[in-house]
Amino acid sequence: MSSTQQNRFTPAELMDRYEIKKDAYYSRLKYLQIKSKKDPETKEAYLEQPEVDLLDRLHDWINETGSMSGFKEEGGELAVVGNSEISQQQTNGKNSEEEIFAAVKGDRSSQKILRRFDRSAQTSAAAALVEAKNILTGDYIANPDQLDEDLKNQVFFEENPQLLDRQWAAQNLAAAIREQKKRS
């Protein structure tokens, strides 16, 4: 086998590599606009290393996001900034949003990467806020006496307020909701 053939990957090899079926494999090729080549002697289709590298990145993207969507629009690649550029920016004090944006102002791919990075940061922040909300909710459930007065009034049902038994409420209210959904 010649050295050029060592960097050739057949569809069967790649489907095994990604653990996907034929339809998924060809959908990915179509999405990436990759055309396989054919060996003139064996007439066997193959891809070369650069296309396989792109397929690898797409496969990672799909595993991360659950979809091919967004991969091509964002380029599917991360920008690589040399360490000297990073240290130069740090020593020059370039750390404000405006300065960073100005540094990549003319480079559209860098702008897309920044937008993707910003979106990722927003998604992480949203997840953290949801988790914080869930923690606070759990605290209020465990300590309903700490609720605001108007909310306490919604929890207490009698003139001589007694807290609703939470276990009873969870069982009976959930059953009532299920019953109501059945009737709808």
Rank of each mutant, 00 (worst) to 15 (best):
Arg116Ser: 07
Arg28Ser: 05
Ala174Leu: 15
Asp56Pro: 00
Asn172Cys: 07
Asp165Ile: 06
Glu19Phe: 07
Thr123Asn: 10
Glu73Tyr: 04
Glu149Ser: 15
Lys152Val: 05
Leu147Asn: 00
Glu77Lys: 09
Asp23Gly: 03
Val155Tyr: 08
Asn153Trp: 03
Val130Arg: 06
Arg116Met: 06
Pro144Lys: 09
Tyr46Asn: 00
Gln88Asp: 11
Lys38Val: 05
Glu13Val: 11
Tyr25Lys: 04
Asp107Tyr: 07
Gly106Asp: 14
Phe9Met: 03
Arg57Lys: 08
Val155Gly: 05
Leu47His: 00
Ala24Glu: 05
Ala12Arg: 13
Leu32Arg: 00
Arg28His: 14
Lys38Trp: 02
Arg166Lys: 13
Ala175Lys: 15
Pro40Ser: 05
Val80Thr: 07
Asp150Leu: 13
Met1Ile: 11
Ala79His: 01
Gln88Tyr: 08
His59Tyr: 07
Pro50Met: 03
Ala12Val: 13
Ala125Val: 14
Glu48Asn: 01
Met1Val: 13
Lys152Asp: 00
Ala174Val: 12
Glu99Gly: 03
Leu14His: 06
Glu97Asp: 09
Asp23Ala: 09
Asn7Leu: 14
Arg166Ile: 01
Gln111Lys: 15
Phe101Arg: 15
Gln33Leu: 08
Glu159His: 11
Pro40Lys: 03
Arg108Phe: 06
Glu158Asp: 13
Ser69Leu: 14
Lys133Ala: 15
Ile20Ser: 10
Ile113Thr: 12
Asn92Leu: 11
Glu149Asn: 12
Thr137Ser: 07
Glu85Leu: 02
Arg116Thr: 05
Val81Lys: 02
Met1Pro: 08
Leu54Gln: 03
Arg115Asn: 08
Ala128Ile: 06
Thr42Arg: 03
Lys105Thr: 07
Ser120Pro: 03
Arg8Glu: 04
Leu58Glu: 01
Ala142Cys: 06
Glu74Arg: 05
Arg115Ile: 11
Arg115Ala: 11
Ser87Asp: 09
Ser120Phe: 15
Gln90Ser: 08
Arg17Trp: 05
Glu99Pro: 01
Gln6Asn: 09
Ser2Asp: 11
